[in-house]
Simulated scan of single mutants.
Amino acid sequence: MTTLRGGTALLAVLVALVAQVTLFPHLAWHGVVPNLCLLVVVGAGLVRGPRFAMVLGFVAGALVDLSPPADHLAGRWALALVVVGYVAGQFRRDTRPRALAVLATVAACSFVGTSVFSLSGLLLGDGAVSVPDMLQVILVAVVWDVVLTPFVLPVVMGAFHRLEPDRVPA
C-alpha cells in the first residue's frame, strides 16, 4: 500500500467518522444514523479489493468503537467492518461496477455489517436489545446506507481509483 493511498484512506475514514458522530445524530431515523465509515470501506473494497478494504475496515471499525458516544464493547464494529471489507472486495471486478451493482453491494454489506455488530452484541450480552428491535435497526441502517450511496460512493471510489489506477499488464 502506498503512503498516499493509506493517508487518503485514513483521511476519508476520519472525515466520515466526524460527520457520523457530529452531524448525523441530529438526523437520526428511529435512533439509527447512517454508517459513513461502512460506506468508505465498501468503496475501498470495490476499487482496491478485499485485502485493502479489510485493513481499512479494521482501522475504521476501531475508530468507531473508540469514538464517543460509543456505548458498546470495543471491537464489535472493527469485526463487522473487516467482514464488510471482505464482502465488498469479493464484488470487485476488473471493470467499473454499474450503479445497480454498487447499490446491491452496499445493501448487502450494510446488512452483513450491521448484523455482525448486532449479533456480536447479543452473544456478548452487550445491551438489552430484543431480536425484533435488532431487525428494525438493521433494516433502517440498510435504508440509510443505500440512500446515502449516490452521495458518498462516487467520491470515495473516484479518489481511490485516481490515487493508483489499475496497471495494465505489458
Rank of each mutant, 00 (worst) to 15 (best):
L36S: 10
L123S: 07
M134N: 02
F91N: 05
W77P: 00
P97F: 00
H26F: 14
G89C: 05
A9E: 02
D71L: 15
V42S: 03
P68M: 01
I138Y: 00
R162H: 14
L38A: 11
P68F: 01
T105A: 12
Q136F: 08
L46P: 12
V137N: 09
A128Y: 10
L73Y: 11
F160T: 01
M157H: 03
T114E: 11
P25S: 05
T149S: 10
G127T: 13
V87I: 15
D145A: 09
R96W: 08
V155I: 14
L122R: 12
M1G: 12
G113A: 07
V55C: 06
A159Q: 13
V33Q: 06
L14P: 03
G127C: 09
L100D: 09
L38E: 03
S67H: 10
R76D: 00
L153F: 04
P154L: 11
G75F: 09
C37H: 05
V21S: 06
L103Q: 06
M157S: 10
P165G: 11
Q20T: 08
L39A: 09
L81E: 06
C109G: 05
A78E: 02
V32P: 00
V112A: 07
M157C: 11
A88V: 07
F117H: 13
T3C: 04
T8D: 00
F160H: 09
G89E: 00
L23E: 07
R96K: 08
V168M: 06
A70L: 05
V32I: 13
D65H: 11
V152I: 15
L123T: 05
F111T: 08
F91W: 12
A74H: 09
A16Q: 06
L119F: 14
D94Y: 03
Q20C: 08
G61A: 09
R162A: 14
V142G: 05
V112D: 02
A78V: 08
R167K: 10
A108I: 13
R51S: 07
A60W: 06
L66R: 09
F151M: 13
D145Q: 07
A141V: 03
D94V: 10
R162S: 12
T149K: 07
H30A: 14
A62L: 15
P50G: 10
R92F: 01
Q90M: 12
N35Q: 10
G121A: 04
E164S: 15
D126G: 08
G125W: 07
C109F: 05
Q136C: 06
